[in-house]
């Protein structure tokens, strides 16, 4: 088996979390796609630097962070300084999910689904319209009978409620260690 085949196996195992990480920090799907590809290519080129005693996911997301910042600088509308402000905690939450022993990725998502089920109806509907059915915010707002701004605020509160739930279930951490 060739080296790149081994690499692909590892990448497949961590691809979903990489996508989630990039989407957490970039609100532009094109940027996410570009960063995803650049991250994998960079990771392959620097694979000799990878400490094989350490987990692969955080190492790859570290590369993704730098890749995202580099790509974002080329896009005027992207507020690159915000990545730095948010990244440490987002990365910590992703790493914590990655490190949960015995969990497959599907099981981790099952925890998220449990939390969605525990939301109140308004929040659950908002999450369903956008993230499950794939509507854009304007269409989802219309479907919910709300203005776009009101809908987005509702969706934000739904995400905060989900974060609280994930924290309660141990999937998120409360404090990021220095």
């Amino acid at each position: 088996m060739r080296s790149e085949d081994f690499f692909e196996i590892l990448v497949r195992q961590h691809a979903s979390m990489l996508t989630a990480y990039l989407r957490s920090l970039a609100f532009d799907e094109t940027l996410v796609d570009d960063a995803f590809q650049e991250t994998l290519i960079t990771a392959w080129r620097r694979i000799d630097e990878f400490d094989r005693e350490r987990p692969f996911g955080p190492w790859m997301r570290g590369i993704a962070r730098n890749t995202l910042l580099a790509l974002a600088r080329k896009k005027r509308r992207y507020k690159t300084h915000l990545v730095a402000l948010l990244e440490e905690r987002v990365a910590a939450q992703m790493n914590h999910i990655d490190a949960r022993s015995g969990d497959t990725f599907a099981e981790r998502m099952e925890t998220l689904r449990d939390c969605i089920a525990s939301l109140n109806e308004e929040h659950r509907d908002a999450v369903d319209l956008v993230y499950v059915r794939g509507m854009d915010s304007r269409t989802a707002a219309t479907a919910a009978g709300l203005t776009d701004e009101t809908f987005r605020k509702r969706l934000y509160r739904a995400r905060l409620a989900l974060a609280d739930c994930l924290r309660t279930k141990g999937a998120f951490i409360d404090e990021v260690s220095a």
């Binding site: 990039l22 957490s24 402000l85 948010l86 905690r89 794939g134 905060l160 974060a163 994930l166 924290r167």
Partner: peptide, 19 residues
């Protein structure tokens, strides 16, 4: 910033539920 980051992380995870 903590809540904003957690919400952003949830956003990333939720995006994996999409069609």
């Amino acid at each position: 910033p903590k809540r904003a980051a957690d919400s952003a992380a949830v956003h990333g995870l939720l995006s994996l539920l999409g069609p």
